[in-house]
């Protein structure tokens, strides 16, 4: 009976992992608790917007540079001017949002000062069966100097989430680590997945429910997928824009020209939601719809307010074709507007 033999072999492999993992850690328990204490200070608690109607106002973050760069998930929690980070030593500092890429569901924060404990960024890729620890502030159980929670698990697979097309409500389209530990809890998003050497291998993603089976997936976004964007955002922070780029062009594009009316700009940072699209306008022809949230113009920095959008448009001369990235419901759309 061939299939059965196959199963036998597979179980053997599982047993080797499990026994190997257990035994080495049992006989040498100190290194595991030591590993935890090494990585604990590199994971932070983030407090921002939310706190009502089942929306937690907290999430987790990962320190990735001595200058206080914090990798986390892009979410409504970051949508505030008062972003507070609790460090493992109990310090509370204000964080600044450097940039975000909603397609990777990631954001980069910057803390003031330097000398932070941090993970080294390296393109580590894990194979299925690899043993991992997940560190996050799930359920917000830890505050101030209390260490974040630690869970253990095994990488079950590295697969694209879209393998179940339409089942998961996420703009992320790349591969994920599927885990056998229940790591994606409220507040856990942005936490660190580390391997047994304490290396950062992934970022715990937001809670995702499979709408077909009503089950929850446990996953992390592999660090190798995030590295290029992290680097871009960091460089964007440190390389000041060239003078000609920041200066206005002679004949810039305007919202009126495109036929877009935004929601009233009443907040310090009103999200650039489309209120109305003038019929027959370039925006209308490109398929822009009311309630679209404008995220990017020509793939530049994330646009965080109506004002930022207007400033961005001032850099684009009339007659150019504009690529607009919008969020429609849970979906990201790229629309091309011809201004001529």
């Amino acid at each position: 009976m061939k299939p059965k033999r196959c199963q036998n072999w597979w179980w053997g492999v599982v047993a080797v992992w499990v026994l190997g993992g257990l035994a080495s850690s049992l006989s040498a328990q100190q290194p595991l608790t030591q590993l935890v204490s090494q990585v604990h200070p590199k994971v932070v608690k983030i407090y921002g917007a939310g706190g009502f109607r089942g929306l937690e106002h907290y999430q987790s973050g990962i320190l990735i540079s001595p200058e206080g760069h914090v990798l986390t998930v892009w979410s409504y929690v970051l949508d505030t001017d008062n972003l507070i980070v609790h460090l493992a030593d109990g310090r509370r500092v204000e964080a600044q949002l450097l940039g975000a890429d909603p397609r990777l569901e990631m954001a980069l924060l910057k803390l003031p000062g330097e000398g932070y404990p941090h993970f080294k960024l390296e393109p580590v890729v894990l194979e299925p069966g690899a043993w991992v620890l997940a560190l996050s502030n799930l359920y917000g159980v830890a505050v101030f100097d209390e260490p974040v929670s630690v869970q253990h698990g095994v990488v079950a697979a590295r697969v694209p989430l879209r393998a179940r097309r339409g089942a998961y409500d996420t703009p992320y389209r790349g591969p994920v680590y599927i885990l056998d530990a229940i790591v994606n809890n409220p507040g856990a998003a942005g936490g660190a997945l580390v391997d047994r050497h304490g290396r950062l291998v992934g970022m715990i993603g937001k809670e995702l429910r499979n709408s077909l089976t009503n089950t929850w997936v446990n996953y992390a976004i592999p660090i190798d997928r995030l590295l290029p964007t992290i680097e871009q955002i960091r460089q964007g922070r440190y390389v000041p824009p060239k003078p000609e780029e920041s200066s206005q062009v002679r004949n810039p594009v305007t919202l009126e020209l495109l036929g877009i009316v935004l929601v009233p700009d009443v907040l310090p940072r009103t999200p650039p939601f489309v209120e109305e699209v003038r019929p027959g306008s370039p925006a209308d022809r490109a398929g822009v719809l009311p309630d679209d949230l404008i995220l990017f113009v020509n793939d530049q920095h994330l646009i965080q307010s109506c004002q930022a959008l207007r400033q961005q448009l001032q850099k684009i001369p009339r007659g150019e074709t504009i690529k607009l990235t919008v969020m429609r419901g849970q979906e990201l759309r790229e629309l091309v507007i011809k201004t001529q």
């Binding site: 036998n8 053997g12 190997g20 035994a23 006989s27």
Partner: peptide, 23 residues
């Protein structure tokens, strides 16, 4: 049953004695 089957078919020889003792 499957695991003990695996033990019988030989991979146990590769497992260090310390691991088996700990188990």
């Amino acid at each position: 049953v499957l695991v003990s089957g695996g033990l019988a078919t030989g991979w146990a020889e590769d497992v260090p004695p310390q691991v088996l003792q700990d188990q």
